[in-house]
Amino acid sequence: MSVFTEPEVGYLRSQRIGRLATVDGHGQPQANPVGFFLNEDGTVDIGGFAMGRTKKWRNTEANPKVALVVDSVVSEQPWMVCGIEIRGEAERRTGPHDLGAHMSDEVIRIHPRWVYSWGLEDVPGATSRTVPADPSP
């Protein structure tokens, strides 16, 4: 999976909740907690119980630009946090999927275009990079 580094993949696979930011028709941002699923090709799926009736679903129809932030507190003493921000294009998908029978048929698939991560490696600091439209090796 060339979109994410090994530490980023490990972190994303260890987490279940993130915050998805979309933009409504008036240009106003909206952020919601969401469950997410990392795919082998480096895309990220956002599912839900009634995704097709949500504002985030409607927002991505008019504006496919999205951002997903997944972060956590590693330690309070000393204060240490880690996380990843994924900005990209949303693809609205409807139909069968492997996210679970309790999820509706609608899924938002994020195609990463920019990745920013912090606190995931032994080296302090953060990294950011642009992801090519076709990230295959």
Rank of each mutant, 00 (worst) to 15 (best):
A126D: 02
R92F: 15
M80H: 07
S136T: 14
V66K: 04
G100T: 10
A90Q: 09
W79I: 13
S117M: 01
Q77H: 08
S72I: 02
R93M: 14
G88T: 09
S128I: 03
Y116F: 13
E121W: 02
S136A: 12
D105G: 10
V69Q: 11
I84W: 02
D71M: 02
C82K: 15
R129Q: 04
E106P: 14
V73R: 04
R92S: 11
G95V: 09
R129I: 05
V107N: 06
P124R: 00
R129S: 05
E89Y: 08
L120A: 02
A67S: 15
Q77F: 04
R92E: 13
E89F: 06
M80L: 14
P64R: 06
C82L: 03
R129V: 04
E85H: 03
L120T: 10
M103Y: 15
E76V: 09
S104R: 08
H102P: 08
I108H: 06
A133H: 08
E106M: 05
A126C: 01
V69S: 11
S128H: 07
P96D: 13
P64Q: 03
G95F: 11
V123C: 00
W114S: 07
E89I: 15
M103Q: 15
T94R: 14
L68H: 10
K65F: 09
C82R: 15
G95R: 07
A90I: 13
K65Y: 10
L68M: 09
P78Q: 00
D122W: 00
V131G: 08
R87W: 03
N63P: 10
